[in-house]
Write a protein that binds this DNA or RNA. Structure first.
Length: 889
RNA sequence: GCGGGAGUGGCCGAGUUUGGUCAAAGGCGUAGGUCUCAGAAACCUAUGGCUUAGUGCCUUCGUGGGUUCGAAUCCCACCUCCCGCACCA
């Protein structure tokens, strides 16, 4: 709507959210994580950001000096990966850009990584401004190169960590493309291979004379049940020297993979695998001799391309032996050894499941994978090792697996080895391997550091409460973190300039940087020394005023990485008084019940919404759907039209003269005032809890209350209509600030939260009484089989009865006791629930007196009030305090 | 598997901390009505079943038990669904 847009523009030009030190005012410092700017800000960002924004606005109403800054994240690989994809002519990335309204002619420019930053940051700022975000933009920065003060700040932080011995060098497994010499993260993979991680297994060395048959396995504990070895009969194998030993390996990528895991590998010559078939090799643990047999299911590109066969516990092995069906295979089946006891299965679970699933051949991959998964997981968690395991016997597999494997390694019968579950290729078209690389780690496993972090968590507040335990668990489970990568944007690592500090690791304490960011803009690089930052973060006035962080608002995706990191780094770098105070976490945003994604086509940039709708409407929609739990929030985007109308009609209503100047205040007026005051108080709690949904509910509830007020009073009081305009606007100011600012300006209200001292519950009680009475009369009328009603008699119970009932209530009896007492006193069974309708006789009388006229009009007949002791009606006796008898004649 | 969250009426969704006006807010939908040339919108009424002078009963909050005078709410067991388990922002 045009008018809303104009109003928004007006206020966005007037507003100024530059926050400055003011010792007289209490401060409140809120942050939202720095979004990564490889695309437009979308509704997911808006939903979480708005939680910070709403609270910031609320705190300002309450008189706080609020700082809400916003920077942008440019560190990491997504942009670099996108640039690569673009250069290699990937249509999908072009499409993504077009979808985000990038001009087709502009696409070329995105082949330069910096252009992404130059393009999307102004768009992000524009989106936030149009959203009406109350941000101090002077403090905005980015995390990479032109922003020297920030990269120097990161460097300062890591130097401090290094001095405290919290970073160290080590080895780390990664998925790697050897041809392009790169770590292959999700961004460097075709979509179908995203999320595939390497598997950790073992190579067990079986001996054939003086050379080794290396078998790769994920289940070293089944070594005791090996009946044979499998090779792929169509595979090409080589004799290879590995760390001085002679191994048989397939002529595939697995050789490169072994090499990549720091083994000396040298190919000696080809070997005809057929010449090895049926030869017997020695099980290094049991010294048993088992034959090498041909198969087709063994993948020569995984592990070592050779596996050991345990037909009792591995469906593949069992069915392959059945397939082979020769004398030796039959013998192997006879030699099956049962290793684990597993409830619900025979001695040979593999055979059970193959027969149950009717698997007929080793080619039946789909069923075999399922069967294998079933047996693996059940045996791992519930399988009990049999006597054959010696000192490992009688335990669950999961308990002894690692111990058993470690013994094999110690005895040099096996080595650890990682491989991929399927041999996929990178975006660059080459097959990937698992590689062991030198890495730098942040030493999060350091117990002393963890304890400090946990101490910090203890004194923090979390929204919702469940999140606290999650964070504690995350901290306890935290392992060392590889924190430098190559070929990404970011801050160079000062100990090794080839490497860059990756994006989760450079954004740990930057909230502190906000406090000084604007004053460092023109600081020469040479001045940004360690001493300079040391001084800054101990003595600086702004830092000491704004810090600590009062609230961080974040999506739940950061629960297990960024948020614990933030805590770890704060406790390492800053004094206790500067540790963060609170974290609010919310679920992800679903659009009409679906996850938002570019490929699904339901990716909605903030700017797109604001092109058509007002910011207030969007903010309202997000507040309405916001949850104060870790659950995902479902945004029904279609509702925004209706919201837009509601906002406009509220605005129109506010500007209209409404109500009469009344000389006398009625009970119903006081009731309405009480309702409004109560709403105000309730909303305070909602805001403090970041429960914006309930604020919205309150907004709707007030409308219903107002309608009731109109209905009940017939002539509304202008004074209270004005108060209604004010309160109903005020409670949603943080959510829809533009329109409320306009309303307040037009009506000449002061924009400030109203502190309500007391809420007189009696007015609410009286009105509830009236509501019940009206309901009751309606029911009676409906049921009365009287053609023409002349009169309604309302018979109020006697004072005597009322005082008896009051005594029962005041003596705070249990339900049962109250019931007994009531039946004793009134000689009949009375449901104690009626006590909740109790109203003092005086109030009852006043209420009836004031509302008699209303009741007459409402029901169109004469209404009279009688007292129980004076009434001749039989039903008079049934009257109760708060629930008079009703007789229609 | 571990950890977290969740299962409520035709649908969406509150209520669960602190058991009792909870046959369960609010919204959507549906049916009837008012208004209109008509439609849309808006407003009113109804919306588990059977009853009824303002009532009572039955069935119902994933399933099955339990505690209690009383359970959507507390306890136990089970079933189902969603999310996270890292080098990636």
């Amino acid at each position: 709507m045009d008018s809303l847009k104009k109003i928004e523009e007006k206020w966005q030009n007037i507003w100024n959210f530059e926050a400055n030190v003011d010792e007289k005012l209490k401060k409140f410092f809120i942050t939202f994580p720095i979004p990564y700017v490889n695309g437009l800000l979308h509704l997911g960002h808006a939903a979480t950001f708005c939680r910070a924004e709403f609270l910031a606005r609320y705190k300002r109403l309450k008189g706080f000096n609020v700082l809400l800054p916003q920077a942008f994240h440019t560190t990491g690989s997504p942009i670099m990966a996108a640039v690569y994809r673009l250069k290699s002519g990937d249509k999908k990335i072009v499409n993504d850009l077009l979808m985000q309204h990038v001009d087709e002619k502009e696409i070329e420019k995105f082949k330069n990584a910096n252009y992404w930053v130059d393009y999307f940051i102004p768009k992000a700022v524009e989106a936030l401004k149009k959203l009406g975000a109350s941000i101090d933009f002077r403090r905005t920065f980015i995390t990479t190169d032109p922003e020297k003060s920030f990269t120097k700040f990161v460097e300062w932080q890591y130097k401090k960590l290094a001095k405290k011995d919290l970073i160290k060098k080590g080895k780390h497994h990664v998925v790697y493309d050897l041809k392009v010499d790169k770590v292959i993260g999700d961004h460097d993979r075709p979509d179908e291979f995203v999320d595939i991680s390497y598997v950790e297994g073992y190579i067990i060395k079986f001996y054939l004379e003086d050379f080794i048959i290396p078998c790769f396995t994920l289940r070293p504990e089944t070594l005791l049940g090996v009946t044979n070895i499998w090779v792929n009969k169509d595979g090409e194998y080589l004799l290879v020297k590995v760390d001085g030993e002679k191994w048989i390996l397939p002529n595939t990528i697995v050789i490169d993979e072994i090499k990549a895991q720091e083994h000396m590998v040298e190919v000696i010559n080809k070997i005809d695998i057929k010449s090895l078939l049926y030869k017997r090799v020695k099980n290094p643990y049991t010294n048993e001799e088992v034959p090498i047999l041909p198969s087709t299911f063994v993948d020569t590109e995984i592990g070592t391309g050779i596996v050991m066969s345990v037909p009792s516990h591995a469906p593949y092995d069992y069915i392959a032996l059945i397939d082979l069906n020769d004398e030796i295979a039959k013998k192997c089946l006879q030699n099956m050894k049962s290793l684990f006891a597993l409830e619900g299965y025979s001695e040979y679970p593999a055979r059970d499941v193959v027969e149950r699933m009717k698997i007929t051949s080793q080619k039946d991959k789909e069923k075999l994978e399922k069967a294998t998964e079933e047996i693996y997981s059940k045996e791992f968690y519930y399988g009990i090792t049999k006597v054959i395991f010696g000192k490992f016997a009688g335990k669950r597999v999961c308990e002894i697996k690692d111990e058993f494997a470690n013994e094999l390694i110690k005895k040099r019968l096996a080595i650890k080895h990682c491989t991929l579950p399927i041999r996929f290729h990178s975006r660059y078209g080459n097959k990937c391997v698992v590689r062991l690389i030198d890495q730098w780690f942040i030493n999060y496993s350091n117990q002393g550091w963890k304890n400090l972090a946990l101490e910090c968590v203890e004194q923090m507040i979390f929204y919702p409460k469940e999140a606290k335990n999650e964070i504690i668990r995350a901290i306890k489970n935290m392992r060392d973190w590889a924190f430098v990568h190559k070929d990404i944007l970011g801050t160079r690592f000062f100990l090794d300039k080839e490497w860059f500090i990756e994006s989760l690791s450079d954004s740990t304490i930057y909230m502190a940087f906000y406090t000084v960011a604007h004053s460092l803009k023109n600081c020469g690089e040479e001045n940004l020394t360690e001493e300079f930052f040391d001084e800054l973060f101990s003595k600086d006035k702004e830092f000491n005023y704004w810090y600590p962080l009062d609230l961080r608002v974040s999506g739940k995706d950061l629960l297990y990485n960024h948020l614990p990191f933030m805590i770890f780094h704060h406790v390492a770098i800053f004094d206790r008084k500067h540790w963060p105070k609170a974290i609010a976490i919310n679920g992800h945003v679903l659009i009409n019940g679906e996850k938002m994604s570019k490929s699904k086509g339901n990716f909605i940039p903030i700017l797109d919404v604001l092109k058509k709708y007002s910011s207030d409407s969007l903010r309202f929609l997000l507040a309405m759907n916001s949850y104060s739990s870790l659950n995902d929030m479902n945004v029904e985007i279609g509702k925004i039209d209706k919201i837009e109308e509601e906002i406009v009609s509220w605005y129109d209503f506010c500007l209209k003269e409404f109500g009469n100047d009344l000389k006398k205040e009625r009970m119903i007026d006081k009731w309405f005032e009480t309702v409004l005051n109560k709403a105000l108080k309730e909303c305070e709690v909602f805001y403090e809890e970041l429960d914006f949904r309930n604020v919205i509910n309150k907004w709707y509830e007030l409308e219903r209350m107002f309608n009731w007020y109109l209905k009940r009073c017939k002539t509304p009081s202008k004074k209270y209509v004005e108060y209604y305009k004010k309160i109903r606007s005020l409670i949603v100011y943080p959510i829809i600030p533009h329109i409320v600012s306009e309303i307040f300006e037009k009506l000449n209200f002061e924009l400030k939260w109203i502190e309500v001292s007391k809420v007189d519950e009696n007015y609410l009680k009286v009105e509830k009484y009236m509501e019940n009475l009206i309901e009751d009369i309606k029911s009676v009328l409906k049921l009365a089989k009287i053609e023409k009603i002349e009169k309604i008699k309302i018979i109020v119970c006697s004072r005597e009865k009322a005082s008896i009932v009051k005594r029962i209530i005041e003596s705070n009896l249990s339900y049962e006791e109250a019931k007994r007492e009531l039946s004793r006193l009134f000689k009949t069974n009375i449901n104690p629930e009626i006590l909740q309708r109790f109203v003092e006789t005086e109030l009852e009388e006043v209420a009836l007196k004031e509302n008699l006229e209303f009741l007459r009009e409402e029901f169109g007949v004469e209404v009279v009030v009688e007292k129980e002791e004076e009434s001749k009606e039989e039903k008079a006796k049934k009257s109760f305090p708060g629930k008079p008898s009703i007789v229609v004649v």
